[in-house]
Design a protein around this nucleic acid. Sequence first.
DNA 1: TTGTATGCAAAGCGTTTGCAGTGAT
DNA 2: ATCACTGCAAACGCTTTGCATACAA
Lengths: 139, 139
Amino acid sequence: MERHTRQRAAIRDALARAGRPLLPQEVLTAAQATAPGLGIATVYRALKAMVEEGEVRKISLPGENPRFERSDLPHHHHFQCLRCLRVFDVHNCPSDISRLVPSGFVVEDHELTLYGRCPECALSERLAVKRVQAERRQE
Amino acid sequence: MERHTRQRAAIRDALARAGRPLLPQEVLTAAQATAPGLGIATVYRALKAMVEEGEVRKISLPGENPRFERSDLPHHHHFQCLRCLRVFDVHNCPSDISRLVPSGFVVEDHELTLYGRCPECALSERLAVKRVQAERRQE
DNA sequence: TTGTATGCAAAGCGTTTGCAGTGAT
DNA sequence: ATCACTGCAAACGCTTTGCATACAA
């Protein structure tokens, strides 16, 4: 049965405060503020246990090392802005997932990552285009 | 400038024949049939070069080591069997991707990974269930 | 002949594990 | 008093790199 320790509390706390998925190394650094002497092995063991408990979710975006976030968030996907590289949550979900696969395959779960421009970056690019057009008119 | 070698030909060939994304180790095994003595370091170096050329695509699924496939394939997604862990191509695509994000976001690309049972594993599980049921009837 | 490509072995790096000691129950 | 948890360091698996050699060009 699971025990309540200083270290695990610190790790939970780090994940709760972050508000974004964290790398194991980031968890270590953040949690060491509350639990000095905390080791990386403990972080890995705690994260693994929490993932198995269903308390934490392991997330990996293509080409990135796995990150961890609390799983009490509702089902969601991620949107990465290709300009500022920030990751946003997307709370909708395609409706017709299980229709995508050939017959014989059984779909049980899915992960979706969207890429594009966040509202902020899309706006600042639109303004940049207008600026260029204005310069052209002056020539 | 790039040179034409037995080893790279074998690696290209392995990727072309596979019809699914391969792990570097799988590339090695497959390519050694054509290029005996081929080493894993050469596979990694060749794959890296081909990715930079744009000839090959590196795909990484959550929790999995990166796999490689030719990038001349039409747009598609991936399905991983949770039992045998093999990865398959899925040639369909959800229709309503850009409707998922709040207004202001601009979707330019997306990656989707499905999880479940491949036909083979789904079948063998169904057979296992039948076997258990038969045993129960005998008791 | 030149210099990229190769094979081997060693090094890197993130992650896991063995072990003796710690501490929650 | 248990026995799960911890820290450390060694081990691990995948990937990269240093180096001397092989072989396209």
